[in-house]
């Protein structure tokens, strides 16, 4: 264990201990142990319904779990989590990008990005706008700031969603299948923005079906099968020399086409 910690170089920013989650009689997450260190990019892969989205949604309390313990940046989440101070703190420090973008349709692109910094961090409009404009430029969408979300393409909307999450200056970014709802020609622009973010050293947990992207940006790949971590390791190991039979079978199915 000491060896692992010296490798990662720091205390983990996220630590899950024996996390279990049930939806009624369905056991969705089984004894999940996972630690992510600062600056690490962890990509979570697995079949639909394997529990990979549920896993990252537990980290910012969008899903509650029944047993185990989650610690995020020193804040503790407990089973059957209520809306505690710690949860609020975690959500302030953890950004999330959703499959369906979930932009606020009644607000302009700029207001989508400035809302949380102003209401949660208490920034004034000038500072929030300045930061928003810088982030929108970074995701290459600054000329659309006055528009409303529905006037943008899917790829543009997802890049705004990324800027919106980054405006809170998060310590960790969660991505829940960020390209699954996009037309094929728009996937690249979103992955590019994420690639850049990874290069800048952002800690990221990414649930995706984009295996090429996973191999390229991941420091570590986690394969989830029926609610359990079946295999984890560097991308070369998981993709090229999987140790688990289930990983092999999953990869042969998704990499075939």
């Amino acid at each position: 264990m000491n060896h692992d910690e010296s490798l990662s170089g720091a205390d983990p920013i996220v630590r899950l201990d024996k996390v279990n989650k049930h939806f009624g009689s369905l056991h969705v997450l089984k004894d999940i142990d996972l630690a992510v260190s600062s600056g690490e990019v962890v990509v979570i892969i697995g079949a639909s319904g394997s529990g990979k989205s549920t896993l990252i949604r537990c980290i910012n309390g969008l899903e509650e779990f029944q047993q185990g313990h989650i610690q995020v940046d020193g804040n503790d989440l407990v089973p059957h989590g209520k809306a505690t101070k710690a949860l609020q703190k975690i959500r302030t420090e953890v950004g999330m990008v959703f499959q369906q973008f979930n932009l606020f349709p009644h607000l302009s692109v700029l207001d989508n990005v400035t809302l949380a910094p102003m209401k949660v961090r208490g920034w004034n409009r000038v500072d929030a706008t300045e930061t928003a404009e810088r982030l929108l430029e970074r995701v290459d969408i600054s000329d659309q700031a006055a528009k409303y979300p529905t006037q943008l393409s899917g790829g543009q909307q997802q890049r705004v969603a990324l800027a919106r999450a980054l405006a809170m200056e998060p310590r960790l970014m969660l991505f829940d299948e960020p390209t699954s709802a996009l037309d094929p020609e728009m996937i690249g622009e979103v992955l590019d923005a994420m690639r850049e973010l990874a290069k800048e050293g952002m800690t990221m947990m990414i649930v995706t079906h984009e295996m090429g992207f996973a191999r390229e940006v991941a420091d570590r790949v986690v394969y989830i099968h029926q609610g359990e971590i079946a295999e984890e390791g560097p991308p070369e190991q998981v993709f090229d020399a999987p140790r688990n039979e289930r990983t092999r079978s999953f990869l042969s199915r998704v990499l075939k086409h």
Binding site: A83, R91, G95, F104, V120, A165
Partner: peptide, 27 residues
């Protein structure tokens, strides 16, 4: 209002009350 709107608000650190006031109610 779609569930994702509430989740997006909460995930940004807005309280439940703020999420309702600034995101759910206007829509």
């Amino acid at each position: 209002i779609e569930r994702g709107q509430r989740e997006a608000g909460l995930s940004l650190g807005l309280s439940r009350r703020q999420t309702f006031r600034y995101i759910i109610w206007p829509q």
